[in-house]
Measured scan of single mutants.
Amino acid sequence: MATVKFKYKGEEKEVDISKIKKVWRVGKMISFTWDEGGGKTGRGAVSEKDAPKELLQMLEKQ
């Protein structure tokens, strides 16, 4: 499965696309949330040019 790689608060992170729940556009950035388990929700953002095609497809479906 595809993953999204991004930096959050200076830390490199990687999230499996299948865990992503919500995707939206903020200017030229793609923001998203995912389920971290245990009732926690993670947040992240990646530039439109660095976003994997699967993430962009999720954005178009909404």
Score class of each variant (00 low, 15 high):
residue 23 V to Y: 11
residue 16 D to E: 10
residue 21 K to N: 12
residue 52 P to H: 04
residue 25 R to W: 07
residue 40 K to W: 11
residue 50 D to Q: 14
residue 24 W to D: 03
residue 61 K to C: 15
residue 21 K to S: 10
residue 57 Q to A: 09
residue 19 K to A: 07
residue 43 R to S: 09
residue 27 G to N: 13
residue 44 G to A: 14
residue 2 A to K: 05
residue 12 E to Q: 08
residue 34 W to F: 07
residue 26 V to C: 15
residue 34 W to Y: 12
residue 23 V to E: 00
residue 12 E to G: 03
residue 32 F to K: 00
residue 35 D to C: 15
residue 17 I to S: 03
residue 27 G to P: 11
residue 39 G to W: 08
residue 26 V to E: 07
residue 46 V to A: 09
residue 19 K to W: 12
residue 18 S to T: 07
residue 34 W to C: 01
residue 22 K to R: 13
residue 5 K to A: 02
residue 44 G to C: 11
residue 21 K to E: 11
residue 18 S to R: 07
residue 19 K to G: 11
residue 58 M to K: 08
residue 12 E to P: 06
residue 40 K to V: 13
residue 5 K to E: 01
residue 10 G to K: 02
residue 36 E to A: 07
residue 61 K to T: 11
residue 14 E to Q: 04
residue 36 E to N: 07
residue 38 G to S: 10
residue 52 P to N: 05
residue 56 L to E: 06
residue 29 M to Q: 12
residue 33 T to Q: 08
residue 37 G to I: 10
residue 27 G to I: 05
residue 12 E to W: 14
residue 4 V to W: 01
residue 51 A to K: 01
residue 14 E to C: 05
residue 11 E to C: 15
residue 62 Q to M: 07
residue 60 E to D: 07
residue 58 M to S: 06
residue 51 A to S: 07
residue 38 G to M: 06
residue 46 V to T: 06
residue 59 L to M: 07
residue 17 I to H: 02
residue 55 L to W: 03
residue 53 K to C: 15
residue 48 E to N: 08
residue 51 A to D: 02
residue 48 E to R: 06
residue 62 Q to E: 14
residue 36 E to D: 12
residue 17 I to L: 12
residue 20 I to S: 00
residue 48 E to A: 08
residue 40 K to N: 09
residue 17 I to K: 02
residue 49 K to E: 05
residue 53 K to H: 05
residue 25 R to S: 06
residue 60 E to V: 12
residue 50 D to Y: 08
residue 41 T to M: 15
residue 24 W to R: 03
residue 62 Q to C: 15
residue 29 M to D: 06
residue 36 E to S: 11
residue 42 G to N: 07
residue 31 S to G: 06
residue 21 K to T: 11
residue 43 R to P: 08
residue 29 M to F: 11
residue 25 R to L: 08
residue 50 D to R: 09
residue 50 D to C: 14
residue 27 G to S: 11
residue 29 M to R: 13
residue 18 S to V: 11
residue 37 G to W: 12
residue 25 R to V: 04
residue 45 A to K: 04
residue 17 I to N: 01
residue 60 E to K: 11
residue 42 G to Y: 14
residue 30 I to F: 12
residue 44 G to I: 07
residue 2 A to Y: 04
residue 43 R to M: 09
residue 48 E to Y: 10
residue 25 R to Q: 06
residue 25 R to A: 09
residue 49 K to G: 08
residue 34 W to D: 00
residue 58 M to G: 04
residue 62 Q to L: 11
residue 31 S to E: 09
residue 23 V to D: 00
residue 8 Y to I: 03
residue 36 E to M: 15
residue 30 I to D: 00
residue 56 L to G: 05
residue 7 K to M: 13
residue 43 R to F: 11
residue 3 T to G: 02
residue 47 S to F: 14
residue 32 F to R: 00
residue 48 E to Q: 08
residue 6 F to G: 01
residue 46 V to F: 02
residue 26 V to G: 06
residue 62 Q to H: 12
residue 9 K to T: 01
residue 39 G to A: 12
residue 58 M to N: 04
residue 19 K to D: 13
residue 41 T to F: 13
residue 47 S to Y: 10
residue 2 A to I: 12
residue 14 E to N: 04
residue 59 L to R: 03
residue 20 I to E: 00
residue 45 A to H: 06
residue 54 E to D: 05
residue 48 E to F: 04
residue 25 R to Y: 08
residue 22 K to S: 15
residue 40 K to I: 12
residue 27 G to M: 14
residue 8 Y to G: 01
residue 17 I to W: 01
residue 1 M to K: 10
residue 59 L to A: 09
residue 1 M to F: 13
residue 45 A to Q: 10
residue 20 I to K: 00
residue 46 V to N: 02
residue 2 A to D: 06
residue 60 E to R: 04
residue 49 K to P: 11
residue 21 K to W: 15
residue 47 S to C: 14
residue 9 K to E: 06
residue 49 K to Q: 09
residue 60 E to M: 11
residue 9 K to V: 02
residue 33 T to A: 08
residue 54 E to C: 12
residue 3 T to V: 09
residue 35 D to Q: 12
residue 50 D to P: 02
residue 32 F to I: 04
residue 24 W to A: 03
residue 45 A to L: 07
residue 29 M to W: 15
residue 40 K to A: 13
residue 61 K to V: 13
residue 20 I to W: 01
residue 22 K to Y: 15
residue 29 M to Y: 08
residue 52 P to E: 03
residue 2 A to V: 13
residue 44 G to V: 13
residue 22 K to F: 15
residue 18 S to P: 04
residue 33 T to S: 14
residue 52 P to C: 05
residue 32 F to G: 01
residue 22 K to I: 11
residue 6 F to V: 04
residue 29 M to E: 09
residue 13 K to R: 10
residue 1 M to Y: 10
residue 58 M to Y: 07
residue 26 V to L: 08
residue 56 L to Y: 13
residue 18 S to K: 09
residue 35 D to R: 09
residue 4 V to E: 00
residue 27 G to W: 08
residue 24 W to C: 13
residue 43 R to Y: 10
residue 60 E to L: 10
residue 11 E to Y: 06
residue 30 I to E: 00
residue 2 A to P: 11
residue 10 G to A: 02
residue 21 K to I: 15
residue 10 G to T: 02
residue 4 V to G: 00
residue 39 G to M: 13
residue 1 M to L: 15
residue 28 K to I: 06
residue 2 A to R: 08
residue 16 D to G: 07
residue 7 K to F: 06
residue 62 Q to R: 03
residue 54 E to A: 06
residue 4 V to F: 03
residue 52 P to F: 02
residue 8 Y to P: 01
residue 42 G to E: 11
residue 9 K to Q: 11
residue 49 K to S: 05
residue 43 R to I: 11
residue 3 T to Y: 05
residue 17 I to T: 04
residue 3 T to A: 03
residue 55 L to S: 00
residue 15 V to G: 01
residue 30 I to N: 00
residue 20 I to V: 06
residue 57 Q to D: 09
residue 9 K to H: 14
residue 37 G to A: 06
